[in-house]
Nucleic acid binder design. Sequence first.
DNA 1: GTTTAAATTAAACGTTTGTTTAACTTTGCT
DNA 2: AGCAAAGTTAAACAAACGTTTAATTTAAAC
Lengths: 210, 210
Amino acid sequence: MEEYSEKQLAILKVAERLFADQGFHGTSVRDIAQEADVNIAMISYYFGSKDKLLETIFRYRMEASRKFINELLENNTLEPLEKINSLIDRFINKMLGEQYFQCIMSREQLNSQASPVRDLIWELKGEMLGLMQPIVTQAQEAGIFYKDVDVEMLMTTLFGTIHQVIPAQHILKKSAPATVTNDDEFREYVKTRVSTHLKKLFKAILTHEF
Amino acid sequence: MEEYSEKQLAILKVAERLFADQGFHGTSVRDIAQEADVNIAMISYYFGSKDKLLETIFRYRMEASRKFINELLENNTLEPLEKINSLIDRFINKMLGEQYFQCIMSREQLNSQASPVRDLIWELKGEMLGLMQPIVTQAQEAGIFYKDVDVEMLMTTLFGTIHQVIPAQHILKKSAPATVTNDDEFREYVKTRVSTHLKKLFKAILTHEF
DNA sequence: GTTTAAATTAAACGTTTGTTTAACTTTGCT
DNA sequence: AGCAAAGTTAAACAAACGTTTAATTTAAAC
């Protein structure tokens, strides 16, 4: 568990935003240094290289994701469907709370070349699947969930929907109700809209009830 | 309606693949020229610039997508659910048939900076929504589909799921049954798996039946 | 066969890229 | 105070970038 100085965190934060907005190769270390208000050489000095900087961002966020998964494993008192609903909400909160990083993930998972970053992504996705799989399977065996459900695809739908929503937000802004006036309200509006949609979807296909 | 020479098409094809695999900024015009077996200068000569080359790819694919949409509008004899199912299958076929381009779209839609390419993407997405919306609405008014469905979100789920499946294929390869031996069979396997999943999902939430 | 335009080439253009250097400043420790 | 390590800087580095140039070849028209 490494800790980062204020300056290092400033670089990481700026780099994450720029990588998300313009892509890794679309962002120069000079852009990052300027916006983070540090000398260009500091990036190599701290992180070794631009590639390593990206990897650092990934390891930093991934560590948090691991913690996140372990926290989810503790809720054992809930009913299966409530567990799923809680899981959906937590996923939405997590992913919309780190939108910049999710954008980078969206981009990097498309790279055809193998890389440490790409491996990390699919490793994490596997862990996420391993989180949902037993919940569904147990409920299926208890006769609460129906059996003709492709859990892997369901997880794909969960990720895919949220990953589509992130860049679609500037479109959703137009169809938002008039009660949404500031950014916080809009974030909440998006959250509940995605949440409501996904919960309905999961409930319908898992329990055949409404 | 422009037509392209063999050499121009070779450039477009190579560029599309490389942009998909490595990103726009991750691909140099020298890479493209080398793989397409043409002189570097030909790219500027034919398309003006690297940016214009990307835009050309987009306009080329978008034109096909428009035709695709218009074809879908003609099927009026089917039942609402059959219409939806047909639409799902056609979307899957279309998008998995032009995976390279879909990868580029996935990437480009994340760009925060406004650009002609980004505008084209959301324009097209709007048209896709306009295709599904009336089908659902009419069926809702006829009492065939339930009303508490967020069609915009459902479309997001459709796109999102397929866009997630594309980079996930090398993972799906591992969980494929032993009957899948070559690439064609695998493509078919992926198609039917996504299709089955999405149809179940749509049927469940739209009709409350199974 | 001559002429004109289009196609194609290798080379060079000026920038920008990520990274490193070497000098300098600050910090913390004894 | 004195010293060593860490932090910070402007400048320079070679390599790669997208694009253009000018010369040459090919093709088409008359």
